[in-house]
């Protein structure tokens, strides 16, 4: 017969009871909180299901359309699979590459313009560099407005003001970028080491000299990294600016989708995905390089 050795010391029952009770109560309280949270979420979910006109039965009936749609994307007009005849699939490659290039340029010019604006305003809303509270608050509110209004809404308005084409797209991206980057830049500036700035101020440097030699060298790497991230986001955003007539490949894509040119849709989508991925990988490499350069200093 195996003999069992109790090595775990157990408190006597009268001492143990309050502890186990307290543990049970704590667990019960946590569980109640969780159940309440889940109940609220489910209630909101049901409410939004009604609001968004969700119809599971219809979804079930039509989910076939989804696979069907993708299989149609994979077929040419002739009924062959698209990859059997790449020349036919990418018949508009020249035009599409040009439009894709335009998309990239829109993203680039928009990002740089926005980043320059953010660079200037980022310093203006830092409490450590600007004394006037009203100026700081105004700049902050302005940036908040710029990043809360979606870029496509700006694009819709600018298309009316500037006419169709890439210009409204660039403007929309630039404004949105200025808002988003301005906030991030301000946070970076808020976290700098003030000693170099004070040193320059003590030796008689002007405000510009303080910013140029005291602040900029500290923040440049972070600024660049954020700008690269934003460029990635803007390439994605620029691909749909054409939906509202603001230039780039989006216009070609929406026409192809609306007119059911399935093979064209898939070809353009493949190009966009490839392009976005290349840009992602490229900027990631650059950012890592930047981090290494900072580390080596």
């Amino acid at each position: 017969m195996p003999h069992v050795i109790h090595t775990v010391p157990v408190l006597p029952a009268p001492q143990l009871a309050p502890l186990t009770d307290a543990y049970a109560a704590a667990i019960a309280a946590k569980r109640r909180q969780m159940i309440l949270g889940i109940a609220i979420t489910l209630f909101l979910l049901a409410l939004s299901g009604l609001g968004a006109e969700v119809d599971p039965a219809m979804f079930w009936n039509k989910i076939g359309n989804f696979t069907d749609y993708f299989s149609r994307l994979a077929h040419l007009d002739s009924g062959e699979y698209v990859w059997t005849d790449p020349a036919e699939w990418f018949w508009g490659l020249r035009r599409w590459t040009r439009l894709l290039g335009e998309t990239l340029l829109i993203a680039y010019v928009g990002t740089i313009t926005g980043a320059v604006v953010a660079f200037c305003t980022g310093f203006l809303c830092s409490a450590r560099l600007v004394k006037s509270a009203t100026l700081r608050a105004t700049v902050r509110r302005l940036l908040e407005f710029c990043r809360t209004v979606p870029d496509l809404v700006f694009a819709l308005i600018f298309v009316v003001a500037f006419g169709l084409g890439p210009l409204p797209g660039v403007m929309a991206l630039a404004i949105h970028t200025a808002g988003a980057l301005g906030k991030l830049f301000a946070e970076v500036v808020d976290n700098i080491d003030l000693k170099p700035v004070e040193g320059i101020a003590a030796s008689g440097g002007s405000w510009f000299a303080q910013v140029r030699f005291g602040v900029v060298p500290q923040v440049l790497a972070n600024f660049t990294s954020y700008t690269l991230l934003r460029f990635e986001i803007n390439v994605r955003g620029a691909s749909v600016l054409g939906f509202v007539g603001a230039g780039g490949i989006g216009e070609e894509l929406i026409i192809a989708i609306r007119r059911f040119y399935y093979a064209d849709v898939s070809a353009i989508l493949v190009l966009i995905v490839l392009c976005v991925m290349l840009i992602d990988i490229g900027t990631e490499k650059l950012r890592h390089g930047l981090v290494r350069m900072e580390g080596a200093r």
Binding site: R236, G237, V240, F243, L253, L269, I272, V273, V276, D280
Partner: peptide
């Protein structure tokens, strides 16, 4: 791949 397709698409 899926991430690089915009919501609007």
């Amino acid at each position: 791949t899926v991430r690089s397709v915009d919501t609007l698409i």
